[in-house]
Nucleic acid binder design. Structure first.
Lengths: 192, 192
DNA sequence: AATATATTAATGAACGGCCATTAATCTACT
DNA sequence: AGTAGATTAATGGCCGTTCATTAATATATT
């Protein structure tokens, strides 16, 4: 049932998906859904949390890994994030962006914490790249957001049957990011 | 009134913004809105079209400009797109992504045409950079999407009072993109 | 094994709320 | 007087959720 809801939320949006829609798609009446979830919001929360977990889990160790090469870490992070992202079907919207308003403050905070964790990890990886001399001293926040932007939006336009394969996309984004970061100058950096 | 609707749609989403909301915010009753717009969808269409116009208009000439330096063109495009994007308030969602479903097919097509125009322009600029020897032969679609992704998502996280200024962001993205593209190898390219 | 009891899953019916929109009427302006 | 803008009252529709009931399944008891 959660999978059904997840699919519909991504396809149509949270608000445009009714409990009746979920029931019809899953094969039960909407009232039955309340035997499994307390309300609609809880379904959304479960969906978002599960996806965030899938994104964070494989890269979590990077936060404390001060030994592996930062370039390898960057590639690993990009590859993991991208593969999770593209393991789902293409979607016209990014649910992480649009659905947070529909969560109560405490649940929203939990999802935002996941995002913060992601941001923290990617910045650490980049930081290590700087410290190791691969990248110039740059704004970690900007760099992290740029890379994440490129990855997250692949879900909107990437189509597995057309153009580049996932592997090629990993390569492209990794190299683009690596070159992009490597070539930046001190200018534009800002102490935070 | 259009400005009021635009603001609310971006803040809360199209579906979560009721005609009552628009009326209250604008200072009239919802029924009055129908003296100016035939229905809710027409408001959305007007909002999206106006914003797309603002994005496309300043860069439209780039489509037929085979003389200016492609690097300058790239910078100009990034700068224009970014400045339009950040001329609006930060938003938790990208209306272009989420609201298209709420348009009738013919109106949706019109907005998508704008996006296609943007994609065409940015790919042309990159194409020229390739032809002029600045970039290696790469997948134009991927490259275009990457740059556009970085720009469009600034609307979600950029805050004018914190961190980098708009100008610094223009510099950052331009250089990131320029270096990113410049350093790419033939590998990963794919004939389309 | 058969039966009673408990639990879980599923449903029909309905509620109260909100929505976009319309028709009729009113008000302000020229 | 005519018109544009604004409002009131109402409609039909959809929504998330609740409640009482039923059906199916699991567990405990004899």
């Amino acid at each position: 049932m959660l999978e059904t809801a997840r699919r519909l939320f991504w396809e149509k949006g949270y608000r445009a998906t009714s409990m009746r829609d979920i029931g019809i798609s899953y094969g039960c009446k909407p009232a039955n859904i309340y035997n499994f979830f307390s309300d609609k919001e809880e379904i959304l929360f479960a969906v978002l949390r599960e996806e965030m977990e899938r994104i964070i889990h494989p890269i979590k160790h990077l936060e404390d890994d001060d030994h592996t090469s930062p370039i390898e870490q960057l590639r690993f992070l990009i590859e993991c994030h991208l593969k999770v992202t593209l393991s789902y079907r293409r979607s016209a919207r990014l649910l992480f962006d649009v659905a947070l308003d529909n969560l109560s403050p405490d649940k929203r905070k939990k999802i935002i914490d996941y995002r913060d964790t992601y941001d923290r990890i990617i910045r650490k990886v980049i930081r290590r790249g700087i410290d190791a001399g691969f990248f110039p001293k740059i704004d970690l926040k900007l760099a992290g957001f740029m890379i994440a932007s490129m990855i997250t939006r692949t879900r909107i336009w990437f189509h597995p049957k057309q153009g580049a394969s996932v592997g090629e996309l990993v390569d492209f984004i990794f190299k683009f990011a690596l070159n992009g970061l490597s070539g930046l100058k001190r200018k534009g950096s800002r102490k935070r």
